[in-house]
């Protein structure tokens, strides 16, 4: 089984995330990492490979630093990486990103493409569905549990109104939630081994994409403005030492007409 996993390099959520002067997310000037939610996608791929044999290749598009996301995935145990790196990609929206990824994935001949449920910075959760649309693959997304049985994949999907069991046949596109598994920590040995694993760097030209098809200027959406929200003004904090906390709480709620 050949499995491709799409992972994203994102600014660290615990740091100060910001926008650059051109209204795009600053992925260069702040500390970044493999999106935590993509660790579940990598882990699921490794489990399936370890069960059924095959190969796991990591695919990302992002700036130079995004290589760190590939490296982390290789340390977890993936076999190879593909990094689509091209200045012209900067500022692409989900439509553009999915276009680049789809072209990169077409070359992989994967039986299974696995994505995370959403990126922790943009958190749109739309790239997987867009990829399935572009690649004309069955979409089996937001899986909280995955079983592979021969060429049939079955997932549990916890929807808004119901839990559904969804079934499809390979090749297909899967996305997994953080309920799916527990991502492994790389061992020292795995960290050393990752250094020798191949990472292919591709440009847009390698994928047959011209610069005017992607990037900020050809995005189908435009950020008009962004504003840091003023921090919430400090609230009233009372201590329940004297056992009067509940009354004060209820007074507050009544004052706000919640009762």
């Amino acid at each position: 089984m050949r499995i491709a996993v799409c992972v994203k390099y994102v600014p660290d959520a615990s740091g100060h995330r910001t926008f650059g002067p051109d209204d795009t997310v600053d992925r260069v000037g702040v500390d970044g990492m493999l999106s935590e939610l993509d660790e579940y996608a990598v882990e699921e791929a490794l489990r399936i490979r370890d069960d059924l044999g095959g190969e796991v290749v990591i695919v990302t598009t992002g700036p130079e630093q995004a290589r760190a996301a590939i490296l982390k995935s290789l340390q977890m145990g993936a076999d190879a990486g593909v990094h689509v790196l091209d200045d012209a990609i900067h500022g692409s929206d989900a439509v553009g990103t999915s276009y680049v990824l789809a072209r990169a994935l077409e070359r992989q001949g994967a039986d299974l493409v696995i994505c995370g449920m959403a990126s922790t910075d943009g958190s749109m959760g739309v790239v997987p569905a867009m990829l399935a649309e572009r690649l004309r693959l069955p979409q089996v997304t937001l899986a909280s549990e995955v079983t592979v049985d021969g060429s049939t994949v079955r997932i549990r999907r916890d929807g808004d109104a119901a839990t559904e069991v969804v079934e499809a046949r390979l090749p297909l596109l899967l996305s997994v939630t953080d309920q799916c598994n527990e991502p492994r920590y790389p061992s020292f040995k795995a960290i050393m081994a990752a250094k020798k694993k191949p990472v292919e760097v591709l440009t847009l030209a390698d994928l047959g994409i011209t610069a005017d098809e992607v990037g900020l200027d050809s995005a189908w959406t435009r950020v008009v403005s962004h504003q840091e929200r003023p921090p919430r003004s400090a609230g009233t904090i009372v201590t329940d030492d004297d056992g009067d906390g509940a009354r004060q709480l209820v007074d507050f709620l009544a004052g706000q007409k919640f009762i």
Partner: peptide, 10 residues
């Protein structure tokens, strides 16, 4: 922490 206004251009 940040508020963004945006529009669709296509």
């Amino acid at each position: 922490s940040v508020t963004v206004t945006a529009e669709v251009t296509h």
